[in-house]
Amino acid sequence: MDKRTNADWLAAISHAGDDRENALADLDDLLRKYLPGALNRWLASNDPRFNALVDETVQETLLRVLQHYPAFEGRSQFTTWVFKIAVRVALTDLRRRRWKNISLDEIEAGWDEEGPEIHVAIDPVAQPERLAEQNDVVRRVEAIMNDVLTPRQREVLVMVGVHGLPGDQVAAMLKTNRNALYKMMHDARSRLKQRLEAEGLTTDEIISAFSQQ
């Protein structure tokens, strides 16, 4: 187990030479020892792609460490900061691989210039007695979503909600980034919240109507 302090790590990494090489080799070992156990939920360790994922993640992480170590602010252990980079690299890669064959054209097929309309699918078999009451609230919410949200916000909601795409994949398809996408959807939530409150629909009422019992 490595006993370097944050200052030790930074001193070793900030200058080319044996100390840097030794530090990177130690980080390589730590990543290969502790990262695989955390990735099992997303890709089984006996999957033929697993070892390649770990290799690529370790390489990319070490590159990013070399690029970004001056930005390390010491808010955590240096190793935790490195693990954080590795986790983001690995999970972003896994999400991208899962959806790489899906094109934006395929998803947008049938949409007009105003973007998609939100349509909520109700399964009548799942809630026979409450269907009429639910239908009323669901259609009101659906109409409000179509009225309040911008075409781009509806587009994102359909990509995430109907097609199940992860946020970073949606961001890549729309040529934006995850950060901007979050801000866009925060704006969508804020607009909807205001409008639903103005229309006298409480969140509890909606959740109750939408819950399948």
Binding site: V120, I122, V138, V141, V162, H163, R189, K193, L196, F210
Partner: peptide
């Protein structure tokens, strides 16, 4: 939510909208 293989789309599943509404 359903994966792309489940297309053609039948609309947004109720639980997805409920989850989104809950986040409001």
């Amino acid at each position: 939510p359903p994966a792309m293989g489940d297309l053609p789309q039948k609309g947004m599943p109720l639980q997805v909208v409920a989850s989104f509404a809950g986040s409001l």
